[in-house]
């Protein structure tokens, strides 16, 4: 399946990406080739086959709900690109 430039732009927006104009044509072509190859999956006979979410152990993993000390804001916010005291600072959300 081929993918159009406008589709790529729409998907990029959903993923919060902004592809540079100079890269766009190439990206559209490469994605088209990859998706075309992936279309191969349509030939596989999957009638009655169950979904698999991976190789993880299938039983539930439970534990006691025990209170443990939290590392605290000093640790949690140590890598914040912008902070004010114990808060993350972000651009204005409500205008």
């Amino acid at each position: 399946m081929k993918i159009s430039k406008s589709e790529v732009e729409k998907i990029a927006h959903l993923a919060r990406l902004e592809i540079e104009d100079s890269q766009k044509e190439k990206m559209v072509e490469q994605l088209g080739n990859i998706l075309q190859y992936i279309d191969k999956l349509k030939d596989a006979n999957i009638d009655g086959v169950r979904l698999s979410s991976g190789a993880a152990i299938m039983n539930n993993v439970l534990r006691e709900d025990v209170v443990e000390a939290s590392p605290g804001p000093c640790v949690t916010l140590a890598n914040a690109p912008d902070r004010d005291d114990d808060f993350y600072v972000v651009p204005r959300v409500v205008k």
């Binding site: 993923a15 990406l17 902004e18 890269q23 994605l31 990859i34």
Partner: peptide, 21 residues
């Protein structure tokens, strides 16, 4: 958008787009 586009390289962006699609 600007953070992700400047922060991620092209292969990562390509895979994010395939996955999102």
């Amino acid at each position: 958008k600007k953070t992700k586009s400047k922060g991620f390289g092209l292969e990562v962006q390509r895979r994010i787009i395939i996955g999102t699609y």
